[in-house]
Each structure stands twice: as C-alpha cells, then as structure tokens.
Amino acid sequence: MTATTETAPSGSRGSQPPVPPGAITLTVQIRRFNPEFEDEPRWQSFEVPALPTDRVLNVLHYIKWYLDGSVTFRRSCAHGVCGSDAMRINGVNRLACKVLVKDLMAGNGKPTTITMEPIKGLPVHKDLLVDMEPFFEAFRAVKPYLMTTGHEPTRERIQSAADRARFDDTTKCILCACCTTSCPVYWTEGSYFGPAAIVNAHRFIFDSRDEGAEERLDILNDVDGVWRCRTTFNCTDACPRGIQVTKAIQEVKRALLFKRV
C-alpha cells in the first residue's frame, strides 16, 4: 500500500515542509496563462515562506510542489549554466536560479512582493513557459558554427592567446534569451535578429580560425541586422553571464563600417 495525498493539488509533493527559522513571508505574484481554458493572462498571488538566502527558483519550487502544482516554468540545471529559467522578475529579465530573495527584499522590514512574468516578445505556451523557436531561428540564421574552406588540417588549428581574447566575452552565451527578450526593438519587431544572435555571430566573426566572417557580416548588414540596434543597453543589463552585449553589437557595426574584422 502506498501513501496517497488526496487533498494535495495535482503535481504537488503533499504536505508543506516545516518553515525554517529566520524565514520571511513573501507575496509572489505570477503571471498565469493557460490557453486551454483562458483567453487572457491573469495575476495570481501566493504567500511563500523563504529564507533571504533562497533563490527565486526555490520560491517557484515551493509554489509548484506545495501550493499549486499547475504552475508551469522551465528549469533544468538550476545553477545558472543551462539558461532555461529566464523570466521577468520584478520587471527585469533574470535567471530565477541566479537571483537571491535577499536582493529583492523590501527595506525596513516592509512586506516584500516579487512579480514573475514570462519573458516578453515570445509566444507564451503556458504560465512562464514560452515558445523559444523564433529565438532559435534567429540564432541559426547567423550560422553559429565554424566555417572553413579547403582541406581540414592534420594538426589542430593554432590560435594565439590574443586572438582568442578577441571573442572571449561572447563565448559565454548560454542562449537563455534574457537579452533578446529585454530588447524593445525585438518586442515590436520579431524579425530583428536580436542581441543573442548577434552575440553568437560575433563569437565566430572575430574568431581567427573561422573564414565565414564576410557571410555573417552580410547577413547582419541588412535591415533586420545590427543597424536596428538602438543601444538601449537593456541586453547588457539583462545578461546573466555579464556579457557586454551592446559592445559586441557595436564591434560588429564597426567591422561592417570599416570592412575590417
């Protein structure tokens, strides 16, 4: 005979765990949307006990496991590496697994409210879960892979430390879409390649081993390419890896302007 938890909502783990000492009660507002039953998204509030050292992802887990199992979101590694739990937390794009509750707490012991929304500019499947396909389509369109001509060398492709440092910053991208979905140009015009695609193009354009720079620069020279960037720096602020996204976009612009990589 297995124990059943008939009273718990579906998907939940049953009775709530004991509240640890030092925990505070957060009001968490989640933008809910279920296209099977609803026409419009709505806000739902939860009261969640949390330690200041908890991550926002822990708060989401608490809600899903103990309060409402139907809350839907993506997360995989939960340690800021895979980039699957990008969401709009208190109005800015962040990875839920990298934001601590103490950084969102209201001062002077006032009650804390945290809002969570799906990232903007991509179609919402359910709750915080969005369709990433338009984002990855733009990523693929800039040909983010090594392109070479001629025969493959028998030895490894040698690169100096200085040449490697040229594109070091843009190798850090984890494709979480925080930058692209924080871009106001992308919100209104989905055909713009977006910061993430340009960052990944930059990673190969400035790689001394790659020979496809001209092709990628041609792609980004178009009306939906780098010239659409309005340098609002939302992308740089949003990047959980600290990539200087706007700077990378400007470097691509400069390469186009002076025909020099």
């Binding site: 296209p35 099977e36 991509l122 179609p123 396909e133 338009p134 733009a138 055909s191 792609i219 010239w227």
Partner: peptide, 29 residues
C-alpha cells in the same frame, strides 16, 4: 484530451538579405 489551441509562433517574416549597404549608410548619415 482536447487539443491545444495555441496561436502559431510569430513566424519571422525576414526576407532574404538584400546585400545592400543602405542601412549602413543611413546609420552613418
């Protein structure tokens, strides 16, 4: 089970690259 009725993902209407420098020159201008 009812079928999900999700609006199609915003399909990019990006035309093929025009290979023109117009946007570059207008930016510079």
């Amino acid at each position: 089970m009812s079928t999900l009725n999700i609006s199609a993902p915003r399909s990019p209407r990006r035309p093929a690259a025009r290979r023109s420098n117009f946007e570059l020159y207008s930016w510079l201008f």
